[in-house]
Structures are given as C-alpha cells and as structure tokens.
C-alpha cells in the first residue's frame, strides 16, 4: 500500500469523530520503482495532508521530506519532486497495521492490503 492511499483512508468506526490519520505500525516495507510524472505530482500536491504524510513516511523509514513551510514553490525543485514521488508512490507498507487514532483498533495489513472491514457493533 502506497502512502497516497494511506493519506485518504480513515477509520469509520461508529462514534469516532476524527478517524484521520491512521497511525501506521510497520512490520515490512518494500520499495517498487515507478516512473516519475511531474504533472501528476504537481496536481496532487495540494490535496495531500502534509503532516500525516511526513509522519507516515518516517514510520516507513524515509525522513527526507521537509516538515514545515511546505509551499507550492517547492514543486519547482527537482530534488523535492524526487523525494515527494518516492515517498508518495514508491514506498509500500507490505505487512503491519493501520491504527484508529481514537479507539486504537487495529486494521491489519497483509500483502499490502489493509483490511478495513468493520465488525457488526462498529457500524
């Protein structure tokens, strides 16, 4: 699972008021190279919740993203784009769990597939 997917998922357990972002527990992380598409990165940049993204990348072992003062002007830097691309699309959480920030309920991740199914009493 890419961090782009992580950046849009949230816990929808009944009673949880803010299920985003899900905390990551990483047991296995893999990297898969893909071609960089600058236009795609420039378009998606404004939609990313940056702090959770940086935190997630750190949890998966990548800490080269800037944490503060992240302005769209950064997108003119090839160095920034390369790091953004890598963190967003090339690092995958393969085994581990996503954890609901309010209840601590774990959603297991196996073979890169998070199981977000809710139990009957959680709906």
């Amino acid at each position: 699972m890419r961090l782009l997917t992580h950046n849009m998922l949230s816990s929808t357990i009944k009673g949880v008021s803010n299920g985003f972002p899900l905390t990551i527990e990483a047991a296995k992380v893999v990297e898969k190279q893909v071609d960089m598409n600058s236009d795609f990165l420039k378009n998606i940049f404004s939609k990313i919740e940056w702090k959770p993204f940086v935190e997630a990348a750190k949890t998966l072992g990548f800490s080269e993203l800037p944490e503060e003062d992240v302005q769209p002007s950064l997108l003119d830097s090839h160095e920034f784009l390369t790091k953004f691309h890598h963190a967003l699309l090339e690092i995958h959480l393969e085994e581990g769990a996503l954890v609901c920030p309010e209840t601590g309920r774990k959603f297991p991740v196996n073979k890169g597939i998070p199981n977000m199914l809710l139990l009957e009493d959680e709906v």
Binding site: M8, S10, T12, K47, E49, L118
Partner: peptide
Amino acid sequence: FVQSDIRNLQCRGKI
C-alpha cells in the same frame, strides 16, 4: 487494494 465495505468507506480530500 483495500478490503472494505463500500458503504462504510470514506476517502478524504477528493484525491
């Protein structure tokens, strides 16, 4: 891939 019931799904931010 994500295992989820579409009816309980929320996807943030119109990504």
